[in-house]
Simulated assay, not measured.
Amino acid sequence: MKLTEIELSKPVRITNMACSNRLVSRRLNDLGIMEGTLISIIKRLPFGGPITLEASNQWISIRRSEALQILVEAV
């Protein structure tokens, strides 16, 4: 399932990082967001705004369009 489809605060594991933008993909890897990482959604802003994730005790906001390209599985 896509990252945007999970419930708030539900932990999931990343199975595929298919970001089309190489810079975004590299930045997420630098922050520790990669395949196999446990994450959860903390906030969703309305009207297609960014999504705030928690991974390894840090909060990271990404665009909704990038979150649509990240596939996850329930833990």
Rank of each mutant, 00 (worst) to 15 (best):
M1D: 11
T4G: 02
I6M: 01
I6D: 00
I6K: 00
I6R: 00
E7P: 01
E7Q: 05
K10E: 01
K10H: 04
P11F: 06
P11M: 03
P11E: 04
P11W: 03
P11G: 05
R13C: 06
I14L: 07
I14T: 10
I14V: 11
T15E: 12
T15A: 13
N16V: 09
N16P: 04
M17R: 07
M17P: 02
S20L: 06
S20G: 08
N21Y: 10
N21V: 05
R22H: 08
R22V: 05
L23A: 08
L23D: 09
V24I: 13
V24K: 07
V24W: 08
V24H: 05
V24E: 06
S25Y: 03
S25H: 04
R26N: 11
R26F: 12
R27D: 08
R27K: 10
R27Q: 08
R27F: 11
L28E: 04
L28V: 04
L28I: 04
L28D: 03
L28T: 04
N29W: 09
N29L: 12
D30W: 14
G32M: 09
G32N: 12
G32K: 11
M34N: 15
M34C: 14
M34T: 15
M34Q: 15
E35D: 09
E35F: 10
E35V: 08
E35A: 04
G36T: 05
G36S: 09
T37F: 12
T37Y: 11
S40T: 12
S40Y: 13
S40D: 09
S40I: 07
I42Y: 05
I42W: 05
I42Q: 03
K43N: 13
K43D: 12
K43P: 07
K43A: 13
R44K: 00
R44T: 00
P46C: 06
P46I: 10
F47H: 05
F47P: 01
F47T: 08
G48H: 01
G49H: 05
G49K: 10
P50T: 02
P50H: 01
I51L: 00
I51C: 00
I51K: 01
I51E: 00
T52Q: 07
T52R: 06
L53K: 01
L53S: 02
E54L: 11
E54T: 09
S56F: 15
S56E: 15
S56Y: 14
S56P: 12
S56T: 14
S56W: 14
S56N: 13
N57Q: 15
Q58S: 14
Q58E: 14
Q58N: 14
W59N: 15
W59E: 15
I60K: 08
I60Y: 11
S61F: 15
S61K: 13
S61L: 14
S61T: 13
S61V: 15
S61H: 13
S61R: 12
S61N: 15
I62Y: 02
I62S: 02
R63W: 09
R63P: 03
R63H: 10
R64K: 14
R64S: 07
R64E: 11
S65G: 08
E66A: 10
A67V: 01
A67N: 00
A67G: 00
L68N: 05
L68A: 06
L68F: 05
L68H: 03
Q69D: 04
Q69T: 02
I70Q: 02
I70W: 06
L71A: 03
V72P: 01
E73V: 08
A74W: 13
V75R: 12
V75T: 10
V75L: 13
V75C: 11
